[in-house]
Design a protein around this nucleic acid. Structure first.
Lengths: 202, 202
DNA sequence: GGATGGGCCATACGCTCGTATAGCGTACAC
DNA sequence: GTGTACGCTATACGAGCGTATGGCCCATCC
């Protein structure tokens, strides 16, 4: 499926998502989107009469992707297995929809209302998982559930947002199976066991 | 010290740092900076002939702040104490220079070269600390040092970057002593001990 | 007391932005 | 075969952008 196989509408939507994710909404002009989509600027406003409407349509598109990716989270398996599954789903989500994730992260950093709501949904999912662990007595009793959930979401979105900076410290591109798996393993280890071999006296 | 006590130059620099941190460089015009500083747009270009030069001057200013905040890290105390001290310094840095931190985070997310170098310096500091812990056998042997350092830096910059989103889940503003201390405690707990009560069988 | 210089402001130019509007070609309906 | 709807393009306009330029005001110095 090459770009020219897609309809103009789909090409515009893909180009807008990519441009907005890479450079931010404010720094991307409609003319930029049109050039990247290979269509005239007029066509963009033919389908999305205003830039705000284009952003709104993209928000809906991204919400659908995110909803699809995290629906039907299994509640039946053991809490620890569910935790593992959620981590794998997050990694898969980043791998399969890197542009959408970056778009959400950047929009949330810019204070976009729709992005903030997606952020809230992510925090709610994370919190629910850790709550299950807490209910089964698997967490340290003094765990700050709110900040644990926030840490998990911030770590994902922050890593994607700061991708260019993170990239400089990796031997291969971040979006390779090896590096994504390494990232997944390191994040799992951090939340499961922290870094210290044994809890210090303090 | 009210704003009018400062020289025009200082007011412009402060206003530019605040505007660039809040809205990003691209989305902030010289006229915006001038308005926030309470001076004419002409004065901005009188001191900083171009917008790029203004950004460059701000970068130097922020580098000086960051260098000052993290110089003279004690190497004499025990590794665990040094780790604690570094965490406290980070929290103090965020508390005392929230605008500078946000500016660095946003610029790094935008791929600005100077910001990327500051990011690298932060990662180097974090990595050195964890390397000390590893040298003393205090870390789990399979710890991924690169990602641990990255996690620490991303967690700080990501939290600041996503401040508006994080804010919605806190009972008080993030930049209050209570919430900053809670954040510090939660981050320390995460890196020290993770969240699980005991390491699972896997 | 006129000259000098620095802090500060007003205006203008070329460019790009978002948006409005009109028009082109082709495919399908009757 | 004419009409009509649709995918798409071209052009124009007002506003805001970064930047260049010139000038005002007032303190300081000979």
């Amino acid at each position: 499926m090459v770009a020219s196989d897609l309809t103009g509408l789909a090409r515009i939507r893909n180009a807008a998502l990519a441009s907005f994710a890479r450079d931010g909404v404010a720094a991307t002009s409609i003319r930029d989107v049109a050039k990247e989509a290979g269509v005239s600027p007029g066509l963009v406003q033919h389908y999305f009469s205003t830039k705000a409407a284009l952003v709104e349509a993209l928000n809906g598109h991204v919400v659908a992707i995110a909803t699809d990716a995290f629906s039907e989270l299994s509640e039946s398996s053991s809490p620890a297995d569910a935790q593992q599954e959620l981590g794998d789903r997050v990694t898969a989500f980043v791998r399969e929809h890197p542009t959408a994730v970056l778009y959400v992260a950047r929009s949330a950093a810019d204070g976009d209302r729709a992005a903030l709501e997606i952020f809230d949904a992510f925090v709610a999912i994370a919190r629910r998982q850790w709550q299950r662990l807490a209910d089964h007595g698997l967490l340290r009793p003094d765990t700050d559930l709110t900040w644990t959930a926030l840490h998990a979401v911030v770590l994902v979105l922050g890593t994607v947002l700061l991708g260019d900076a993170v990239q400089r410290h990796l031997p291969q591109p971040f979006y390779t199976p090896e590096q994504l798996e390494r990232w997944n393993a390191a994040s799992n280890a951090l939340f499961r066991e922290g870094t210290y071999r044994a809890a210090p006296g303090g």
